[in-house]
């Protein structure tokens, strides 16, 4: 069961400049919980990618929309939930697959790696759109021990 004393909610506006605020805060929170800088940095990257996707695809790059990031710190795991009300996406079509490596750099896709990065770093992920239009991305990272 989640310990309510170890949960924190962050809220930002859908502006690129705000992504680093959440990223830096998350790194600090996760470092405090895990004492593991590598895990903390990986989670920072995964969540920044998730928020980038929300701003770019969900809100079409528009500022002024809300993005909520809930962090749940539990024994042996960190759960993160992002919430937005932008355009939802289809996880099936996105696939989370990395663009195939290419020998010729002219064949390399420039973008489309965000979901692959998220799913590579996090142990579980799910995405759903609620009836009120809220999109929820839920991410979990298991950790060996907490202090």
């Amino acid at each position: 069961m989640s310990d309510p004393q170890k949960a924190i909610t962050l809220r930002i506006e859908s502006r690129w400049e705000c992504v680093r605020l959440v990223g830096s805060a998350l790194r600090g929170i996760c470092l405090e919980h895990t004492q593991d800088p590598e895990i903390a940095s990986c989670i920072e990257l995964a969540v920044c990618e998730a928020i980038n996707n929300i701003i770019e695809h969900g809100y079409g790059g528009e500022s002024g929309h809300a993005i909520v990031v809930e962090v749940h710190l539990e024994l042996g795991r960190i759960g993160i939930r992002t919430k937005d009300t932008g355009k939802s996406f289809s996880p099936e079509s996105a696939g989370g697959r990395v663009p195939a490596p290419a020998c010729d750099c002219s064949e390399i896709r420039l973008r489309g790696r965000g979901l692959h990065i998220i799913t590579s770093i996090m142990d579980t992920w799910s995405y759903e759109t609620h009836s009120d239009g809220t999109n929820v991305l839920q991410l979990t990272k298991y950790i060996r021990s907490t202090v």
Binding site: C48, N52, S106, I108, L110, R113, G114, I117
Partner: peptide, 19 residues
């Protein structure tokens, strides 16, 4: 000390530009 996929995309764009 931090780069995301947007940073990677910028590097790839440079690489493509170099040809």
């Amino acid at each position: 000390d931090f780069m995301d996929s947007s940073g990677l995309a910028a590097l790839l764009a440079i690489l493509k530009r170099l040809g």
